[in-house]
Computed example of a mutant assay.
Amino acid sequence: MISDSKYRIRARVLPDGEPMTIYGREAWCLERLMAAGSRGCTPIEQPAPRWSAYVHDLRHKFGLVIETIHEPHAGPFAGSHARYVLRSEVEIVPEPVEGLV
C-alpha cells in the first residue's frame, strides 16, 4: 500500500486519456519533463539517481511517449548521456475531493 504522504500527481494524456496517479520519483520526473518542453531533460541538468528507470516506468506503466536522444559530452570522463523529451501531450489534473461525486 502506498502512503497518502508519498509525493504524487494526477495526470492524463490529451485529448481524452483517463486520469492516472503517478507516485514518487516518477511523478517528479514527469514534472521535470513537462517543464522542460521540447528541450528535454538530462541527468546532468536535473540530477537524480535513476533517470533511466523513471523514464522506463513512465513509458511502460503509464504509456507515455518519451524520446531518448544520445548526446556526446567531453571532459575527463568523455562519453555520452541521454536527453529525454516528453512527446505525449500531458496535463496535470486536480486530485478528486473526498465526499464529492
Results as ranks from 00 to 15, higher is better:
D4Y: 11
S80E: 13
I69C: 09
R8A: 13
G75D: 00
S80N: 09
E71S: 02
I2M: 12
E26G: 08
Y84G: 00
I9S: 01
A53H: 11
A48R: 14
D57Q: 12
L14M: 11
T42N: 01
W28A: 12
E91G: 07
F77A: 10
T21E: 13
E67P: 00
R32H: 08
Y84S: 00
H70T: 12
M20W: 07
P72R: 15
M20A: 14
A48K: 11
L64V: 02
C29H: 01
E89W: 04
P72D: 13
R59H: 08
D57L: 11
K61Q: 15
A48D: 10
E18L: 12
A78P: 03
R50P: 05
W51L: 03
E31S: 10
R25C: 12
M34E: 02
I66F: 01
H70K: 11
S52M: 05
I9T: 04
D4P: 14
R59Q: 11
E18A: 13
A11N: 05
T21I: 11
W28P: 08
S3P: 06
V93Y: 06
A82S: 12
A82K: 07
P15L: 05
S3Y: 08
I22D: 06
L86Y: 00
E45S: 13
R87G: 02
E31C: 10
M1R: 13
A35V: 04
C41A: 10
R59N: 08
R32I: 04
Y54T: 05
R39S: 13
L58K: 03
R59C: 08
A82W: 04
I22Y: 07
T21N: 07
Y54N: 09
V97E: 11
L58V: 00
H60I: 12
P49D: 10
L33K: 00
K6A: 15
P94G: 06
W28G: 11
G40E: 03
Y7R: 13
L33V: 04
A35Y: 04
W51P: 03
E95Y: 12
G79L: 03
E31N: 10
E67W: 02
H73Q: 07
H60G: 10
K6R: 15
W51C: 01
W51H: 04
E71M: 05
H60F: 15
M34V: 05
A78L: 05
T21D: 09
L100M: 15
D16Q: 12
R12I: 06
R83E: 04
R50F: 12
G37V: 00
G75C: 02
E31I: 08
H73Y: 09
V101L: 15
I2L: 13
S38R: 09
I9F: 02
L14H: 05
A35I: 04
C29K: 02
L30A: 06
L58N: 03
D16N: 14
E26V: 11
A36L: 01
V85A: 00
H70M: 14
E91N: 08
P43M: 01
E18W: 09
